[in-house]
Design a protein around this nucleic acid. Structure first.
Ligand SMILES: [Mn+2]
Ligand SMILES: [Mn+2]
Ligand SMILES: [Mn+2]
Ligand SMILES: [Mn+2]
Lengths: 222, 222
DNA sequence: AATAAAATTTAGACAAATCTAAAAAATAAT
DNA sequence: ATTATTTTTTAGATTTGTCTAAATTTTATT
């Protein structure tokens, strides 16, 4: 037997899941923009997902994933993040190079394969961008973290996640030697443009814009 | 950019390549039977592959892969066999379990990913069924080997390849402890049904049918 | 409340890959 | 050399996923 759902359907489920998580609610336009497609195409797909009972949908009134749809979405996300981890930890790709490949690998259907991969990798908790990897049953925990704008000045903290994960921001962070696990503290906040000056051990201070700061998440004690 | 050719087109190229290798020539019906599809569907696809210059094709007269088509086919085969090797050596699957998964994985498009995987695996020469893995340029060498029917009696030899690779024969070979690399010799040939009695070191003799013997290839010195 | 704007859905079209049934060509048998 | 059989191709449908343009519904503004 091949995959249960087409790659396209799986991509929609994943997009809807993410938008639900972020905004609490999703619209047709949201999905269209996230998927780089047309609202009419989204509506077409909503009907198909509803027919498969993956989505609760009343036309013009809104939609959300069904229990089953959420379950399927989490399995795709699990695969996506495990493959990203594999690419970075075993094949030594950079964290800014793996997304496109994982976008294809996440559609490989064998559940047994994913579970064996998970085991091979030592059951990692988070992917190379700090995002939690759902376990075999789809369970995961959201890490408590704050973005750099909300980190108190002079408070040591460890980078634990990235919001926007475009290759562009990841490349910028690479350049400034900011990676997952990097320990740093905010030394100064400039009220003029909300830019920040950071200190990383054994490095000279670096400056980042408000836009970057909003997308770097850290955790810290106390 | 996504994949250059659809999974379906890639599967056709691979099937045509294999049939060409075995029979020297391929027919529409051959491909249909190999791909479990209809001759009419094959003709449809032949036209598409021709339009993409992957196939040399004159209707009613026959067809074969172009240089480019052969190159693409070899890259798919390379990916198929490297992923099979990964599944067996790293994820500890049995050689009878990996084909279906590799059938999906072979369509992952990134060339860089395959080359890194190859490196990670230590540039293996053959897949878990003894089939040669083409290198990054598509080069490979066919191993010199004979099937068990043609192995002289009492000649020590090492299993180096399997013809028919259905899960059924692989499971049978598993049961009889015949795997790639197994050292064995033929002790007796029964003229009645061409069945063979084999001896594997530290094991009691096993009997295999002519049908099985034809599909087990070995290499030996002198 | 009426109107304007935005969001969403429908209608109708198209490309890819497949199918069935029928026609055409090639091959085999008389 | 005809005729019969097999192989291959065409004609016309179907399914999935997408699109544009137009219609409908909801929401925001006067
Ligand atoms: Mn994807
Ligand atoms: Mn990630
Ligand atoms: Mn395949
Ligand atoms: Mn193989």
């Amino acid at each position: 037997m091949g995959p249960k759902y087409s790659s396209s359907r799986e991509n929609y489920l994943k997009a809807i899941f993410h938008l639900q998580e972020i905004h609490g609610t999703v619209t047709t336009n949201d999905v269209a923009s996230e998927m780089q497609t047309r609202p009419a195409s989204v509506t077409d797909m909503l009907k198909k997902l509803k027919a498969q009972k993956l989505l609760l949908y009343e036309k013009y009134k809104g939609f959300k994933l069904s229990t089953e749809g959420r379950k399927v979405a989490l399995q795709i996300i699990r695969k996506h993040r495990l493959w990203e981890y594999f690419l970075v930890e075993k094949l030594r790709f950079g964290w800014d190079e793996v997304h496109e490949m994982a976008e294809e690998l996440e559609h490989i259907s064998s559940k047994k394969l994913v579970d064996r991969l998970d085991e091979f990798l030592g059951f990692p908790k988070t992917d190379p961008h700090g995002d939690p990897i759902p376990d075999s049953q789809g369970r995961f925990t959201l890490p408590r973290q704050v973005d750099l704008l909300n980190l108190p000045v002079n408070q040591q903290a460890e980078v634990s996640g990235i919001g926007d994960q475009s290759a562009e921001i990841l490349e910028l962070l690479n350049h400034k030697h900011i990676a997952l696990g990097t320990r740093l503290e905010v030394k100064k906040k400039f009220a003029f443009d909300n830019s920040l000056e950071l200190k990383i051990k054994n490095q000279s201070p670096v400056t980042i814009s408000e836009h970057v700061a909003k997308n770097v998440f850290v955790k810290y004690e106390e």
